[in-house]
């Protein structure tokens, strides 16, 4: 079975050593997904697999046959911007731009995890049905995406703007 990348089927690499990251970058020339460490330590290579975020550098491409991959290039149609992409620009959630695609892909999946009620390390009660998107929740859940330029505040602001519910914003204000 092929891998689907941004909706298009892509044949598996013949060399099983090829990571999903290198398949994207070197064979498909989808270079929006970045290589920052190639060791699972920076999150720059974050992509979505069937909607869930993974790091593509430690993913052997052959392990992902039949799965649907979404990269930064596939988040929005052609010239349009995903609301989070627009919010990153507005809140200056990046400087050099290298970790940015990974941050954005990661945040899109993170919002979905919160919507599904999945807890994090900073979630108070594990059995609570819903989880508020507070600044601390975002900071903890985004900690797998390093940024060396120091755009952390802008990134969190952008995420809160797009995904923050009014309830979360009230909680935030009360913090």
């Amino acid at each position: 079975m092929p891998i689907t990348v941004n909706g298009s089927p892509v044949p598996l690499p013949s060399d099983p050593r090829v990571s999903l990251l290198d398949l994207l970058r070197e064979e498909l020339h989808l270079t929006g997904t970045k290589k920052g460490c190639n060791q699972g330590a920076c999150g720059a290579c974050t992509v979505l697999v069937d909607g869930e975020r993974i790091i593509s550098c430690l993913a052997l491409a052959v392990q992902y046959d039949g799965r649907a991959i979404t990269t930064i290039e596939g988040l929005a149609d052609a010239d349009a911007l995903h609301p989070l992409q627009a919010a990153f620009i507005e809140h200056d959630g990046f400087q050099c731009g290298y970790c940015t695609p990974g941050q954005i892909c990661s945040a899109v999946a993170m919002a979905d995890e919160i919507a599904r009620g999945l807890p994090s390390h900073v979630t108070g009660a594990l059995d609570a049905g819903t989880i508020a998107l507070t600044r601390d929740e975002v900071r903890e859940r985004m900690s797998g995406n390093l940024c060396r330029c120091g755009a952390h505040n802008g990134i969190v602001d952008a995420i809160l703007e797009v995904y923050g519910t009014s309830e979360a914003k009230v909680l935030e204000a009360a913090e």
């Binding site: 970058r25 070197e26 020339h29 989808l30 270079t31 929006g32 997904t33 970045k34 290589k35 990269t71 930064i72 290039e73 929005a76 911007l81 992409q85 627009a86 990153f88 620009i89 507005e90 200056d92 990046f94 731009g97 290298y98 940015t100 695609p101 954005i104």
Partner: peptide, 21 residues
């Protein structure tokens, strides 16, 4: 003013040194 290169960066369309095949 927002960055002039913002759109190209958030789309992953800005080419860095290892991205010139």
């Amino acid at each position: 003013v927002s960055r002039v290169d913002g759109p190209v960066k958030v789309r992953g369309a800005a080419p860095y040194a290892a991205e010139f095949p």
